[in-house]
Design a protein around this nucleic acid. Sequence first.
DNA 1: CTTACTGTACCGGCTGGACGGTCTTGTCAA
DNA 2: TTGACAAGACCGTCCAGCCGGTACAGTAAG
Lengths: 177, 177
Amino acid sequence: MRVRRANSREKILAAAADVAREAGPGSLSLEAVASRAGVSKGGLLYNFPTKAKLMQGLVESYLNNFQKALEARAAAAGHEGVLSAYIKLSADDCEQPKPSASWMFSAIAEDPDFLTPIKAFKRQLFERLKEETNDLGSLLVCFLAIEGMRSMNLFDSDVLSQGERELLVASLLKIAG
Amino acid sequence: MRVRRANSREKILAAAADVAREAGPGSLSLEAVASRAGVSKGGLLYNFPTKAKLMQGLVESYLNNFQKALEARAAAAGHEGVLSAYIKLSADDCEQPKPSASWMFSAIAEDPDFLTPIKAFKRQLFERLKEETNDLGSLLVCFLAIEGMRSMNLFDSDVLSQGERELLVASLLKIAG
DNA sequence: CTTACTGTACCGGCTGGACGGTCTTGTCAA
DNA sequence: TTGACAAGACCGTCCAGCCGGTACAGTAAG
């Protein structure tokens, strides 16, 4: 699959995420994305023949980035375990006040099934973490607390202060051992 | 605010929640809700002059129910503290495989600001819990883990098994003291 | 070199359908 | 009779997807 001229795919995916984040998930129209990406509607539909394909692309790209980031962290401090890497990665991800994944809401509105790969990924991650630990209770608490942190960030819910978030991460790392 | 004939408001709100849950958050149109509620579009728009008002009604009703349920639980076993009540209530809420609050995604798509009252409510609840406890770290872990559980339920993510959920709740109750 | 042809990448006007909201016309209790 | 309330046809808008173009790179025959 050679690429002759420019490839707008990445540009379009980034633009879609930007539009959803800045204009709200309800404003994620093809025209808005195309305009943001500096591409015409026709060009957009050339790269993603359907809106569903665009959503799918967003999910895949999100999952790839996450996987890569997690692997990098786990490799960097390998002896500490994947759970710690996951905690730290999530903590960093949640530093941004505006969630980078608002497009998820658009995807759900379009069709809840778009999130299936994400669910599968999470299940897989959870299984991997289960193999690593011997205290299932602690793992559950940590895993769900991270989930809660990510969810709050996604919903742009600033219930926790900076200090509280740091304390939370510290507590989780302690529980994780 | 007297009601002369039938009270369609409750019926409409329930219908809206049903439609969002069963047909997906993207299918929450006025026509669908009206038809589901056994009411005409005119009747629907008489009760909720605008779609925004309908969303607002959904949020308010959700918050009212939650508040009442929490108060009831807290009163029933008063000495155990509000946090335990919150944990148990959330655990029960998350028993249903299909989330009862899928309409939230529609609300976000419509306008993210619709969730403002929910955020305020959560902040308020968190403050209340802070006053009750002396170990902020444990509270944070519990609070976020519940948030994670609720989020997973909302996204219809069945990562945890029944047994794991029970173990999680037990662990949280232990942490809560 | 030139001409003719092919496939890739992109453009933007158009349309058909869905949806929110309005308006007119009932209907029934008081 | 009146007025709270319901019905559903109708209108304007928005948007996904379609389609007929344009531009350009490569190729290959003459």
